[in-house]
Simulated assay, not measured.
Amino acid sequence: MKEISEGKAAIKNQLEPDEEVKSSILCTYNAKMSARYTPYRGILAVTNKRLLFYSSLFGSPFHLDIRYEAVSSFRHKKGLILGGDHIIVMNNGEREDFQYVNGCDRLETFIEAVQKLKQLPEGSVHV
């Protein structure tokens, strides 16, 4: 993904008619491809219905759609081992790891938007 505007436009194109973006962050997502992980730099958006991630690697678009009902845990992790700020989402038993990159909204704004929606199961949000 070359430009933030490209990511925001791609997210907007994925929205359902009654869906709106509440906040979005620039981040890197480590996608498991075959037996190894590939880092995708892109945008993670929180909407009133789901989390959406978009990236484009070598011109090939990559989308990740995480419905709130599939999320069992949403965590903000910070530390030396992980290196920087991470959002860890357990999605249908799979660990989705997003590393925050400065750009778009502040991380705190993004986390507050997730908390305000109250779409995730009670006790699943750990910040």
Rank of each mutant, 00 (worst) to 15 (best):
K32P: 05
L44K: 00
A31K: 15
T28E: 15
S55V: 08
T28P: 06
A31I: 14
K32E: 03
R50E: 00
G42R: 00
S60L: 09
H63V: 06
Y37G: 07
N48I: 04
K49F: 06
L57I: 13
Y29A: 03
T47M: 05
G42C: 04
L44F: 00
H63T: 11
S34A: 13
N30T: 10
Y40W: 06
H63I: 07
A45Q: 03
I43W: 00
H63Y: 15
K49A: 06
F53P: 02
S56L: 12
R36E: 06
G42S: 04
T38N: 08
S60G: 08
N30H: 13
R50V: 02
Y37I: 09
R50M: 03
F53M: 05
T47E: 06
P61D: 13
F62Q: 12
Y54K: 07
T47H: 07
L57F: 14
L52P: 01
A35G: 09
Y40F: 09
T38G: 04
Y37D: 05
P39H: 01
N30E: 11
A45R: 00
K49T: 08
H63C: 07
L52N: 02
M33N: 08
L57H: 13
F53E: 01
S56G: 11
Y29P: 00
Y29Q: 04
R36T: 07
A35F: 15
V46E: 03
I43T: 03
F58K: 14
S56T: 14
R41S: 11
T47V: 06
Y37A: 10
F62T: 11
R41H: 11
A45C: 06
A31M: 15
S34P: 00
T28F: 11
P39C: 04
P39V: 03
P61E: 13
Y29L: 08
A45K: 03
L52K: 01
A31T: 10
A31F: 11
Y40Q: 03
S34V: 11
G59H: 12
T28M: 10
R41F: 11
G59M: 11
A45W: 04
G59P: 09
F58S: 13
R50A: 02
R41I: 10
Y29C: 04
M33C: 10
F62P: 03
P61T: 11
F62E: 08
Y40T: 01
F62S: 09
M33T: 10
T28N: 10
L44W: 02
T38I: 15
T38F: 12
I43P: 00
R41M: 11
A35S: 09
T38W: 08
L52S: 02
L52R: 01
S55E: 05
P61F: 12
M33L: 15
I43G: 02
Y37W: 10
L52V: 04
K49E: 09
R36L: 14
S56C: 13
R50L: 02
L51I: 09
P61N: 13
M33K: 12
A31C: 14
P39R: 03
Y54M: 05
L52T: 03
T38M: 15
R36D: 03
N30Y: 14
F62V: 15
K32S: 07
I43L: 05
A35Q: 08
F53R: 05
M33G: 08
Y54H: 10
A31S: 14
P61H: 13
F58Q: 13
R36P: 00
